[in-house]
Each structure stands twice: as structure tokens, then as C-alpha cells.
């Protein structure tokens, strides 16, 4: 079967075989928030911001394929509040000083906080001790802002396919490490791509920045996901 029918919040949708709920929703003009997902790289289901309800169960929409006749709940008050609480958790479990962050205005975490009108997180700040690593010639890594989405781990590869970044440690101590030899070889273009891949300001290019003025940045004027909803 090549074309499947399913619904999102009652809206009739069509999906191609093998499409995930997030991909099919997008093709049908429905926004499901994502954070660890990046088009073109294999989904990891790491952040759960895309959680939808199918058959009374919560599922990650970025990893779950559509099946024929599937009934998906997306914008229910419960799911929206759970998504907001995930955003708030990510804010308190790192050190996010947006006013001094170069990614501010272009950051997907911040944009989701705006979308969900987060005035202040409901959870206590954890003030974790995280470091900045400026050892890579073209990039610096700010662990304070890393949300462990694994986009860089999955998406940044050397020419021979080897991974440049990787997870080190476990549990609350996980950090993004890098292969020094491969990371040192990253050129300007690859560094820019790594920065673009990172949803937050944890990978920032050295020597350039603040090119777009406040007011003109990606999420200054319109919410993330808004382009789908306005269409």
C-alpha cells in the first residue's frame, strides 16, 4: 500500500508508506514540535518534545511510522503542557543565559519556549557545573547550553563517514566529546554546518557572529512551526 489515511486531531491526512508521523504531519500542514529531530538525519527519539498520543499511548512522533487508519492526538492541552514542561526542564538542567548567547533569536529551544509562552520554568534551577571547550580551531563547544539532542553526533561526519562528535559519560554526567583529529580538520563550511545542526548555542563558530540584527533573526517575529500553520 503506497498511500495511507490517518487523522491528526480529527483532520484527515494522507501518508506515504514508511513516513514517520512528524514527516507526514508536515506534508499535511500540521506542525508537531521537534527538537532532537533534524530533517535528513536518522531520528533518535531523544527529547520527546514530539510526543503524540496514539491509541491511548504516548509515542515519539519523529520515530513512529504512520499506519493506515491511525488516530493521532497532537494539540491536546495535556500534550501541550507536557511539551512545555520538557522545555522548562531543559532550561533548568543547563545554564541558559539567553542575553549573552550568540544563538539567541535563532535557537530552537528558546523558540519553543516562546511558542509555549514560558515566562519562567516551573522547576528549580540545577546550576550544573559544565564547561566551555575552545580547543577546536573553528568551533567552540559550550556545555552549559547542550541539550544532548545528539544531532551533532548523528550529523557531523568526516569525509570517510567517521563521527566527529560522540557522547561521553552516562546519566546526568553525559557530555559531548569530540575526536580531536577529526574536529581539528573541520573547515569553515563544515563548522557552519555543525553550528546550524545544533538546535541551541552549544556549537558556535569562532571568529564570526552576530551577523543578523535583533528583530531580523529567525524567531524574532513569528513562532517556530508558524510557517506550517499559516500556510
Amino acid at each position: 500500500m503506497s498511500e495511507m489515511k490517518f487523522t491528526i486531531d480529527g483532520k484527515e491526512c494522507a501518508a506515504k508508506a514508511g513516513q514517520t508521523i512528524v514527516e507526514a504531519a508536515r506534508d499535511n500542514g500540521v506542525y508537531i514540535p521537534t527538537l532532537c529531530h533534524y530533517e535528513g538525519i536518522k531520528p533518535a527519539g531523544a527529547c520527546r518534545i514530539c510526543t503524540v498520543r496514539v491509541g491511548g499511548r504516548n509515542m515519539a512522533a519523529c520515530t513512529t511510522p504512520v499506519t493506515n487508519g491511525m488516530i493521532v492526538e497532537n494539540q491536546t492541552p495535556e500534550l501541550e503542557d507536557m511539551r512545555k514542561s520538557i522545555i522548562e526542564m531543559l532550561f533548568v538542567e543547563g545554564n541558559h543565559m539567553c542575553p549573552v548567547c550568540e544563538k539567541s533569536g535563532n535557537c530552537e529551544l528558546q523558540a519553543l519556549a516562546y511558542r509555549y509562552t514560558m515566562l519562567a520554568p516551573r522547576f528549580p534551577y540545577l546550576w550544573p557545573k559544565r564547561g566551555v571547550d575552545a580547543s577546536i580551531p573553528k568551533l567552540y563547544k559550550d556545555g552549559n547550553r547542550c541539550i544532548q539532542c545528539l544531532r551533532c553526533v548523528r550529523g557531523v561526519r568526516a569525509a570517510d563517514g567517521r563521527k566527529v562528535f560522540g557522547l561521553v559519560n552516562r546519566g546526568g554526567h553525559v557530555r559531548i566529546g569530540h575526536d580531536a583529529e577529526l574536529a581539528n580538520a573541520l573547515g569553515d563550511e563544515e563548522a557552519q554546518r555543525a553550528m546550524d545542526l545544533c538546535p541551541v548555542g552549544a556549537l558556535i563558530r569562532k571568529g564570526v557572529g552576530y551577523a543578523v540584527p535583533i528583530g531580523k533573526r529567525k524567531y524574532d517575529g513569528a513562532p517556530i512551526g508558524g510557517e506550517l500553520e499559516r500556510a
Binding site: N95, M97, C98, A120, W127, K129
Partner: peptide, 18 residues
Amino acid sequence: IALGECAIMGGLPAMRNG
């Protein structure tokens, strides 16, 4: 009312927290 980032989460001065 907590007004602004510093009131809400310490802001720039809190960069010394670590």
C-alpha cells in the same frame, strides 16, 4: 513581580555561579 532575566534566573551576574 520578578522583572527581567536577572530577577528570574540570575542573568549575567549568575555567570559567576560555577
